Simulated scan of single mutants.
Amino acid sequence: MPHLKWQKSTYSSGNPNSDCLEAARSPEGHLYLRESDDPDTVLVTTPARWAALLRAAGSGATH
């Protein structure tokens, strides 16, 4: 895995001990996601697929 600069959501509480989603983007454009309390488990996707997931979740789609 490339060296990544992980970022927490601006909606995080600011507490460094709080668990939240962290995201990073590789120079190739891949999107990496991990839970701050389990940083060794990383999901990799593309920005387009992530956007499609968020749209589906927002619309209540079940497929």
Rank of each mutant, 00 (worst) to 15 (best):
G29D: 00
A61W: 04
T62E: 07
W50I: 03
H63W: 13
R25G: 12
L54N: 06
P39W: 00
A51G: 08
L33E: 02
E22K: 08
A24K: 00
E35D: 12
C20W: 02
E22M: 09
A51L: 11
P2K: 10
D38L: 14
H3D: 15
D37Q: 13
A57D: 06
P2W: 12
R49N: 13
H3G: 14
A48H: 12
C20H: 05
H30W: 07
R49I: 06
L31S: 02
D40H: 13
A52M: 11
T45N: 01
N17W: 14
L53S: 06
V42D: 00
E22Q: 13
L31H: 03
E28N: 08
D19F: 13
L21K: 10
E28C: 07
N15H: 04
T41M: 12
R49H: 14
A56L: 10
W50H: 08
H30P: 04
P27N: 09
S18I: 03
Y32G: 03
R34E: 04
S26M: 02
S13Q: 08
L21H: 10
K5E: 15
E22N: 09
G29S: 02
N15L: 06
C20I: 06
G29M: 04
E28V: 10
T46F: 01
T46C: 01
T46Q: 00
A61F: 08
L33G: 00
G14N: 01
H63G: 14
P39I: 02
G29H: 01
L54I: 10
D37H: 14
E22F: 04
L54E: 03
R55P: 05
